[in-house]
Design a binder for these strands. Structure first.
Length: 482
RNA sequence: GGCCCCGUCGUCUAGCGGCCUAGGACGCUGCCCUCUCAAGGCAGUAGCGCCGGUUCAAAUCCGGUCGGGGCUACCA
């Protein structure tokens, strides 16, 4: 039987990094076994679900290149893959479960349940609702059921226990005394997550359910439901949760959790995938940098870690830098150009695009975030209007500054061969004549042309800038030096 | 409170009874390279939560303990 897995987020929030990792693991697992990766929308929470969130989820999935073979928007043999459009079907299943004695109309109130749970807490017994508060069937009237009061609950067989082998955690046993007679249909006759999700897993032929550990204790419910539907339960794999730097479950207060925020900050999807994969999975052989195809080849679901992982932005940042450095200059220009144009508020001319291409390998080397490119490269396209304050006071107020600037102006003006090598030689000549160290003599020039003591390599920068522009900037800065 | 999961450097992890004086990566520190910043090279820093047991031998197996996390909704 071929592998069929699904990622089934509920559109009640943006796609966050933890969910993205779950999606990734499902994707890798499916592709490793040549199976099918399905994207479904578990949107039974009509109160909190929004199209905005749904759109974000699809957008981020596509950005990460986690292509799904079946599901939302791409279609498949099971309709729209949105639970909100299958309510009739879930009702039929629920009614069938009642008919077969696996479920019942429940009239217990929230208040009664609270008392029940509180008493259980006080006596130290199980707080799982066992159906003991329901009225005698003979006392249930038609009007009670039609009055919108009744929910439908699944009847947990008691005594009993559910056992299953979790792919990452091994043998699991849950005593039914600890499992609630849970609601499968709300009083407004809409299905809950447990029902809809399980019905879909059965209908769609899901073979492996790979999801977060927060659903581990709900698994007995899903297995019992599946069996009540006369189906074979899937194999389950529960992934540990992602934590914030303080060891608490990753949430907004730890900073960005929305994947879109990482995209906007300038992270590459390749880096994101690589980093996320390492959170809870080991490719073996002490390797850290793993391409998507290598991950697919190695990910068979066996090397998944059981312990929770802290989402470490520092390492992600490092990895992003690695991926940026590894990309071709052409790719880099393609990514950098729109960023620069947005910053400048205009299109780049053909000559400017050429300059960017020459500059690319230099900027690429010192970029960890795509968003940093603009600050590094802007000076090539527009002369500094202000100078970085600390840069200026550090080098332009030194006694060497005017000497260096004047020397450079003279030497460069006389230079006809505008190559990096010639510029290098000319400027070093200036250093020698004036007995200046490279540090003392070159930094003023750097500040003059780039506005800062930090910039791409000087000689290359000057070469790209051109003679006229370079001399103009040196003159402008020189006029401000006393 | 009940049930469940987890516990190796600060962080992600390798480790499946002797190969471990515990390996790799990020970070951090120092040195080298160097026109700045990066990148790169080299070196260093730091860990098996604790207690007991099994064994000739335990990070690895068992029990307990402590700590962290999850679930305990007509949310998913």
């Amino acid at each position: 039987m071929s592998v069929r897995v699904r990622f089934a987020p509920s559109p009640t929030g943006y796609l966050h990094v933890g969910a993205a990792r779950t999606a990734l693991f499902n994707y890798l697992f499916a592709n490793h076994f040549g199976g099918t990766f399905i994207l479904r929308s578990d949107d039974t929470d009509t109160e909190r679900s929004t199209v905005e969130f749904q759109t974000d989820i699809l957008e981020q999935m596509r950005w990460l290149n986690l292509d799904w073979d079946e599901g939302i928007e791409v279609g498949g043999p099971h309709g729209t893959y949105r639970q909100s459009e299958r309510y009739d079907h879930y009702r039929d299943v629920a009614l069938q479960l009642i008919e077969e004695g696996h479920a019942y109309y429940s009239l217990v109130t929230a208040d009664q349940l609270n008392v029940f749970k509180q008493r259980a807490r006080n006596t130290g017994s199980s707080p799982a609702y066992d159906g003991s508060l329901e009225p005698e069937p003979s006392q249930i009237s038609r009007s009670m059921l039609d009055g919108g009061q009744a929910t439908i609950r699944f009847r947990i067989p008691r005594p009993g226990a559910t056992m299953f082998t979790d792919l990452v955690r091994g043998e699991m046993v849950f005593d039914h005394a600890q499992v609630d007679d849970f609601v499968i249909m709300r009083s407004d006759f809409t299905p809950t997550y447990h029902l809809a999700s399980t019905v879909d897993d059965v209908d769609y032929g899901i073979t492996h359910v790979i999801r977060g550990e927060d659903l581990l204790s709900s698994t007995p419910k899903h297995i019992l439901l599946t069996k009540a539907m006369h189906a074979e339960p899937a194999t389950y794999a529960h992934l540990s949760l992602l934590m914030g730097p303080d060891g608490k479950k990753l949430s907004k207060r730890h900073g960005d959790t929305a994947l879109s925020a990482y995209r906007e900050a300038g992270f590459l999807p390749e880096a994101m995938n690589n980093y996320l994969a390492l959170l809870g999975w080991s490719p073996g052989d002490d390797e850290t940098l793993v391409s998507m195809s290598e991950m697919i080849e190695r990910f068979d679901g066996t090397a998944i870690s059981r312990n929770p992982a802290v989402f470490d932005q520092e390492k992600l940042l490092w990895m992003n830098g690695v991926y940026i450095r590894e990309m071709s200059d052409t790719e880099f220009v393609e990514l950098a150009r729109p960023l620069l144009e947005a910053d400048l508020g205009r299109s780049l001319t053909g000559d400017e695009v050429s300059s960017l291409a020459v500059l690319s390998p230099l900027v690429k080397e010192r970029t960890k975030l795509l968003s940093e490119i603009v600050d590094q490269a802007r000076f090539v396209f527009v002369a500094p209007t202000t100078y970085d304050e600390s840069s200026w006071s550090k080098v332009m107020e030194s006694p060497e500054a005017p000497i260096a600037l004047d020397g450079a102006a003279t030497a460069l003006k006389a230079l006809d061969d505008w190559t990096t090598e010639a510029i290098d030689a000319a400027l070093r000549g200036v250093l020698e004549v004036n007995d200046l160290s490279a540090r003392k003599g070159l930094q003023p020039i750097r500040v003059a042309i780039s506005g800062s003591t930090v910039s791409p390599p000087l000689f290359e920068s000057i070469q790209i800038l051109g003679k006229d522009e370079t001399l103009a900037r040196i003159a402008t800065a020189r006029a401000l030096v006393t």
